[in-house]
Amino acid sequence: MKLTLSLNGHSTELVAAPGARLLDVLRDAGCTSVKRGCETGDCGACCVLLDGEPVNSCVVPAAFAADAIVTTLEGLNDDPLMRRLQDCFLEAGAVQCGYCTPGLLLVAWQRLREGGELTEYDVRHAMSGNLCRCTGYAKPVRAVLDAWEAMP
């Protein structure tokens, strides 16, 4: 099955086996920030933005991405807000093994873009679909709050 979608800002044609998940085709297309984690929709490591909203790509059939706009972390390399968020993660020591980091960055980026007040609870709520077994969450939460405070 051939699939046309906008992937990280470029119109892209991908080949997907019947029953393939969005997770599979994105990794095959070189977007390895999309991690294969629990594969049951629980851990958030495979998070991508589908038409601008975070979803777990392990529970999305590839066929659903036809004509959709898909953004992975690779697509936000030059985004100023993402750069700032990444810097804050580094400065706060919010990355250990790094497996959950792309998913955390995407949901945090999306939450920061929504704007409005941001409390520690809000950050934890926004990130509650992303499991991290290394950091204990305190430093990633700090990093997001740091990025928010640095926003113009």
């Binding site: 929709g41 958030g44 998070c47 909203e53 975070p54 777990n56 949901v107 679909g129 992303n130």
Partner: peptide, 9 residues
């Protein structure tokens, strides 16, 4: 319920 990535689906 769940996390935002699941509530979006």
């Amino acid at each position: 319920m769940a996390g935002v990535q699941i509530r979006n689906l």
